[in-house]
Design a protein around this nucleic acid. Structure first.
Length: 409
DNA sequence: GTTGATGATTCCTG
DNA sequence: CAGGAATCATCAAC
């Protein structure tokens, strides 16, 4: 794409300055490396003086004013020695292999940059605008058990902020790309201009372009890093579940409590039961696990405090069970309104007798209870169950009058 | 602002 | 890896 020997037409200011001839190692004026370039010249002594003069002019060209330099440059380009000198320069360059120095440097992709790219893509900042972006990040955070669905008001805020970051990122990226492209064009023009007075190979230009791109790439990676940091801050601020804790809905709490107290002998829902509870309470399975974990430990810590609650739910379940007995068409009715669980039919039947007492509610449905228990309790629970039963004697749930709870703690 | 309740997280254990 | 225990952070009632 370059024609180094083409006639001079351009006379831009850039060409008159950095001609770059004073850095060439093989350019000693009195000792041309290859005499072929001076073919046809008969008087060697005069020639040497000519060359000396020309080079002297070239060396001092940067000290001159623009117009003067332009004029000198034009004079030099028109000089009869110019083609010969140019040819010498070309040969010197070829011999020394200057233009090829470091030409082979093929840098592997920067792992740090790749990481940043991947992260921005995952966060929805880079890549396609809709679908995989903020929504994906939010849904990921939610499904990991972070937030309850009613915290979605925070999501829209998060999305809008993420969108802002995305916009800024793309604007800046565009700016950088434009600047890079402009600068590259400028440098290429400069080199083309210079190629009229010194040999500049296409490969050299490519190398220069690569250098420029590397420089801009490092700026870009800084931009990417800053963007990643901004997204991280945003995430921690908006998606940190602790900050955005929301109480479960009344219905959800009721459902969980119902299950807890109706399985007081073994309040360890199986995966299946957790899934069902999660579905019915509109929370995630990990939230169900959290809830039961908290409930068990808090109940155990202060059984007396939960006595009333236990009684309440015992009443409810008992009422539900009675109703279900009376009207077999509604077997799953638990007296808790819209909330019902398939496993709640074993209301308090799993509660072991306290000091040999009979369970207060014996519906004659022990078989059903066993079946439900078998289905709902995982193998893991059977391990922990014994422990729970031994250590946590449930209160006489349905007889508040005979409260003999130990009010532990 | 204080305080108790509560959902989530972290660390540890079996 | 599930669960216990401790703790944190926020909510909500006062």
């Amino acid at each position: 794409m370059l024609q180094p020997q083409q006639p001079i037409t351009g006379n831009g200011p850039s060409a008159s300055r950095g001609l770059g001839l004073n850095v060439h190692p093989g350019m000693h004026p009195l000792n041309p490396v290859h005499p072929a370039g001076l073919e046809g010249i008969e008087n060697g002594h005069d020639n040497r003086r000519d060359i000396k003069d020309i080079l002297q002019q070239i060396m001092t060209i940067t000290d001159q004013s623009l117009d003067e330099a332009q004029a000198k440059k034009h004079a030099l380009n028109c000089h009869r020695m110019k083609p010969a000198l140019f040819s010498v320069l070309c040969e010197i360059k070829e011999k020394t292999g200057l233009s090829m120095r470091n030409a082979q440097e093929e840098e592997p992709p920067d792992p740090q940059l790749v990481r940043l790219d991947n992260m921005l893509l995952a966060e929805g900042v880079a890549g396609p605008e809709k679908g995989g972006g903020a929504a994906a990040a939010v849904s990921a955070a939610t499904s990991s058990g972070g937030m309850s669905p009613d915290s979605s008001l925070g999501h829209s805020d998060y999305k809008s902020k993420l969108s802002q970051i995305r916009n800024i990122y793309h604007t800046e990226l565009e700016k950088y790309e434009q600047a890079c492209s402009e600068f590259t064009t400028h440098v290429m023009n400069l080199l083309r201009e210079q190629s009229r007075t010194r040999p500049v190979s296409p490969r050299e230009i490519e190398r220069m372009v690569a250098i420029i791109h590397r420089k801009f790439s490092s700026i870009q990676s800084q931009l990417k890093q800053s963007t990643c940091e901004a997204v991280m801050i945003l995430r921690s601020r908006f998606l940190d579940a602790r900050r955005k804790r929301r109480n479960f809905s009344k219905q959800a709490t009721e459902g969980l409590n119902e299950y807890f107290y109706s399985h007081l002998s073994n309040p360890y829902p199986s995966e299946e039961a957790k899934e069902e509870l999660a579905k019915q309470c509109s929370i995630t399975m990990s939230q169900v696990s959290n809830w039961f974990g908290n409930k068990r430990i808090r109940y155990k810590r202060n059984i007396g405090k939960f006595q009333e609650e236990a009684n309440l739910y015992a009443m409810k379940t008992a009422l539900g069970a009675t109703q279900s007995e009376e009207s077999p068409h509604t077997p799953n009715s638990t007296g808790s309104g819209s909330f019902s669980l398939s496993g709640s039919a074993d209301c308090f039947l799993g509660v072991p007798p306290v000091n040999g007492e009979q369970p207060p509610y014996h519906m004659g449905a022990q078989d059903a209870q066993s079946r439900f228990s078998e289905r709902l309790y995982s193998t893991r629970e059977s391990r922990t169950n014994g422990n729970w039963q031994e250590q946590n004697t449930p209160p006489s749930a349905t007889s508040p009058g005979s409260d003999h709870s130990d009010n532990s703690d």
